[in-house]
Amino acid sequence: MERVTRTSGPGSDSGPALEFHDVTVAYGRRPVLWNIDLVIEAPGLFGIIGPNGAGKSTLLKAALGLVPLAGGSVRFFGRPLDEVRRRIGYVPQRETVDWDFPVSVMDVVLMGTYARLGWFRRPGSGERALANACLDRVGLADVADRQIGRLSGGQQQRVFLARALAQQADLYFLDEPLAGVDARSQEQIFRVLAELRAAGKLVVVVHHDLRTAAEWFDAVALVDMRLVAAGPTAAVLTPENLRRTYAGPLDVLDELGRAIEQGRRTP
């Protein structure tokens, strides 16, 4: 069994940057992710790869506590989520928000500073300077005052990335950051992600494009309702593993999922 092993990350952390321990996730009662077991060490660019509906985004959301775990646990730097939330940056899928919302690019990036600000405090000049620096890193300093809906898809994705940068995290989760993004933005995004890796961070990216995956990620996990394989990119993206990942959902899982949902036995 291949595992991703690297030298230990920074600080006095007692465990790997990210550890899924036998995680099962259910929507309602029906499991959509079965028994995921995965250890990822910082620094690195880690891709979560799989077909549509495989549960890749669900895995991220489960890690972040956005969907409840039906079983198992997730630990960050050896600690539970609540102790390390401020060290985690998150870039949700672009389609999950309404881009017609009346906020400016600067407003959105400032949201990255909210966790440190605490309740009821407004961002001040320090936060603005940080947000400007983050916008600069993704090449959007000149559109800071624009309403977010007036940007291109790639620019919108970079705004989200800038917001995550403003979180000043040690571990970044990105959900399909390259979906519907122009080539220039793609390149810019990956340049920033590579910078993060160079700074010792772990970047976990949900991704669906196999071609770019081989090129960009140090290590990947293949997921289709369960973890098919994980490890260094070249070792994992073998024809056999890919066939197992993309062969379609396993009908045993399908039958069982329905039976559990309805509280009965399978045939």
């Binding site: 069994m1 036998d22 099962t24 077991d37």
Partner: peptide, 22 residues
């Protein structure tokens, strides 16, 4: 079918076993 170490196998099977039919 999964990358699951042996010592992790037990707990999930605990609740699946009641839903498996012949």
């Amino acid at each position: 079918h999964t990358e699951l170490p042996l010592d992790h196998l037990h707990p999930p099977a605990e609740w699946i076993e009641h839903h498996l039919g012949a």
